[in-house]
Nucleic acid binder design. Sequence first.
DNA 1: GATAGGCGGATTGTTGACAATCCTAGGTGC
DNA 2: GCACCTAGGATTGTCAACAATCCGCCTATC
Lengths: 228, 228
Amino acid sequence: MNPVGLDVSELEPVSRRSTAEIVADRIRTAIMRGTFAPGAQLGEVDLSSRLGVSRGPLREAMQRLVAEGLLRSERHRGLFVRELGPDDVRDVYLARTAVERAAALQVLAGDRGTAVVALEIPLGAMESAAAAGDAVALADADHDFHAALVAASGSPRLRRMTEGLLVETRMCLAAFQQTAPPAAELLVEHQRLRDALRDGHTELLLDRLAAHMDDAVQRILAAMPGAA
Amino acid sequence: MNPVGLDVSELEPVSRRSTAEIVADRIRTAIMRGTFAPGAQLGEVDLSSRLGVSRGPLREAMQRLVAEGLLRSERHRGLFVRELGPDDVRDVYLARTAVERAAALQVLAGDRGTAVVALEIPLGAMESAAAAGDAVALADADHDFHAALVAASGSPRLRRMTEGLLVETRMCLAAFQQTAPPAAELLVEHQRLRDALRDGHTELLLDRLAAHMDDAVQRILAAMPGAA
DNA sequence: GATAGGCGGATTGTTGACAATCCTAGGTGC
DNA sequence: GCACCTAGGATTGTCAACAATCCGCCTATC
């Protein structure tokens, strides 16, 4: 609490975000959740009327999503949800490994105590989700875990990259969300990541992180229709 | 050459890029070159009239640049060129190190012969620029070297990340482009990177890459006004 | 003299309509 | 029956005008 008597987080967004940003977030989560199937066409008039905004801000939001790689734009054809193939899965995790490795090293070099504390929240959520068998909550917790890890690095750029990569990860997962993930195994893997981080075992942490990513790729590719 | 008798690169853009994309590229290079000073406000009507487009496509382009982190948007205030401080310099190079390290490992695991060949072009340009004392050409060659390295990894995502990071690097460099860079030293550093890559010396390459990044940070911070 | 309130100018945010382009379906000639 | 051509419908790309918001300056008041 500060002298004004308000939590700083409340007065931070003195001016709320732009319409384009809100629209982009909405569509991004919709794509992430699998509401829009991969390859589906997104009509501008349809979306704009459904979201209650004009086509101007909507097009601005679309440009962002195209830049993020979530949408594919064909001139005078329309906007389509990108379809991720096996190569994309491997590439997403290759990039994630690179970014999260760097983030982990930064955390180890800095204040890893607060980082471990921050990781406990998604770990708790993951435990609950695993016990309840809630696949969506499990994916959310997984997402939050890695986001928290990178956020703890204090690097805005690593954070922003991870943000985009995690969305793509969710797109990959949404493709085969009917198959139940090995919740217990997933939980243990994340707990071991936290343990290695807490104890400051650099090499162990990096190895476990790489292995964790490889496992995920194998799991996804195994459940993917046209995987090589 | 294919049966049609055309280079594939010529028929790739069957439909030319959207106006927003062209505008974004123009402004991006302008920011990169330092045409727009950091912190400068970019008026929409001014830019749109100067580029000969309406405000619609221009705003779409701006959204992209904001998403890339080149511009800062304040609601009902305007768009401003982001000013990069010492922390940003360190962060850009931290991210670059992470991405280029991963790219280098991919190149080493794949076809490093063609990669070395691809690196010779910017190296030649760098040599010429160093001999001629052309700072801009030197920066261009440096840019191209690292872009070629990451492109050789075959990873679209690493490539796209690098694209953005290199633009930010140029923004950092533009801040103090009056000071002449140590051209000879820079050339040798890049040649040694190529040598380690050519000979397949993994650890040596990674070490030299990290050292190369650290050197750059030190050089930039030393020439920076308010560096800590 | 310092501060609160209000006005003018300028900029951004949003909207609806117009123009260009493309895919699809139907028809025609061979 | 097949290929080509043409008209229709729908979608995106672009534009100019309207509305909302904010900053700086000025004035009036304490």
